[in-house]
């Protein structure tokens, strides 16, 4: 775990007037609903442990009320935990005093918000430069880097406009540029794309992935949309009622859901488009050279297309010019059916 940029350990958050007294009850396993009914306290988060690796996109997914927005606000201490530790880049941020915390927020992290949260009375350029002007950087330096990042997110020419003159998608581009201008390692994105319509959301996801290829930032992304989570996640954390139900590589979660809740969650997605060849292949390397080649990062849809409907076909899977395994089309077909339905065929609709 040496490459962890953020470690969240044994984190609990309870909302209510006497939250510290409730901790022991939460630790001994009292349910969220019981605690609300008997003591009037809301159990926000229970025993959260996450290692967030440098340069990866960690997606925290859950339905509304699952505690995901509460969790991300612990990373910059917009919310203080009831118990537990949050370690960012080697420092326990719960031990910081007010000034150190300001410094942390100014230099180490930036945030993108669901409702954009731009300053309505300042221009796009000033908004994008806000993190730097808060730190008190030189005016010309701020404008230069704000212009650069606005250009990177595709907003050249909009510098002098005010936020309300832009569409929602463009406003969120300003929000993204603002986060990038701060030039910090960690980017927190709180349902950043949830307020956008599907087409714009998809193009914003592409923009984020494209930027990430160059920048290799550490990104924590909150969403309630599984398709979005699977598209951008390197590491996926699924929350339910303030607890982690499962976390790991998205492909792994898809193929091995830990419990019925997740099975239910993943049952409606287009598996052919999300699953990659490398997650389904067998790692046997056949010597024969007459097999057709297939890239391990292709999705199953591409493999099905390439097979032209032949169920008996086998491909040699390559990654970076090296053969890493073989893919039988029969495995592809099996992988397309969720595990739950495979073991219990009568459930299939």
């Amino acid at each position: 775990m040496t490459d962890s940029f953020i470690s969240i350990r044994n984190l609990y958050k309870i909302f209510g007037p006497n939250s510290s007294a409730m901790i022991s009850r939460a630790k001994s396993g009292m349910h969220k609903a019981d605690m609300l009914k008997e003591f009037g306290h809301v159990l926000g988060l229970r025993n959260i442990n996450i290692e967030i690796k440098k340069g990866e996109i960690t997606v925290i997914m859950g339905l509304s009320g699952s505690g995901k927005s509460t969790l991300i606000r612990h990373l910059n201490r917009l919310i203080d935990p009831t118990s537990g530790e949050v370690i960012v880049n080697g420092t326990d941020i719960l031990k910081l005093d007010r000034l150190q915390l300001l410094q942390l927020r100014r230099t180490q992290m930036s945030m993108v918000f669901q409702k954009f949260a731009l300053l309505p009375h300042e221009t796009v350029l000033t908004n994008a430069g806000m993190p730097c002007s808060v730190r008190g950087d030189d005016r010309r330096v701020i404008d230069k880097s704000a212009r650069e990042w606005l250009h990177r997110v595709g907003l050249s020419g909009a510098e002098a406009l005010y936020p309300h003159q832009l569409s929602g998608g463009m406003q969120q581009r300003v929000g993204l540029a603002r986060a990038l201008t701060s030039n910090s390692e960690l980017m927190l994105m709180d349902e950043a794309y949830s307020a956008l319509d599907p087409l714009i959301r998809s193009s914003m996801q592409d923009l984020l992935l494209e930027l990430q290829e160059d920048l290799q930032k550490t990104i924590v992304f909150i969403t309630h949309d599984l398709d979005e989570a699977l598209k951008i996640a390197d590491h996926l954390v699924i929350l339910k009622d303030g607890e982690i139900v499962q976390q790991g590589e998205p492909q792994h979660i898809l193929l091995n859901p830990a419990d019925p809740y997740i099975e239910d969650f993943v049952s409606d997605i287009n598996r052919a488009r999300v699953l990659r060849v490398r997650s389904v292949m067998t790692e046997t390397i056949s010597g024969s050279t007459d097999l057709e080649l297939l890239d391990g990062d292709e999705n199953l849809e591409a493999a099905i297309l390439r097979s032209k409907g032949e169920a008996g076909k086998t491909f040699a899977v390559h990654t970076a010019g090296q053969q890493v395994g073989t893919l039988k089309m029969t495995d592809v077909l099996k992988a397309l059916v969720p595990a739950a339905r495979r073991s219990n065929p009568s459930n299939a609709e």
């Binding site: 910059n76 917009l78 915390l101 300001l102 410094q103 942390l104 927020r105 100014r106 992290m109 930036s110 945030m111 918000f113 949260a117 731009l118 300053l119 309505p120 806000m130 993190p131 808060v134 730190r135 701060s182 927190l188």
Partner: peptide
């Protein structure tokens, strides 16, 4: 907006 102001320190 206030939360954003806080988040950027």
């Amino acid at each position: 907006v206030l939360e954003a102001a806080d988040a950027f320190g």
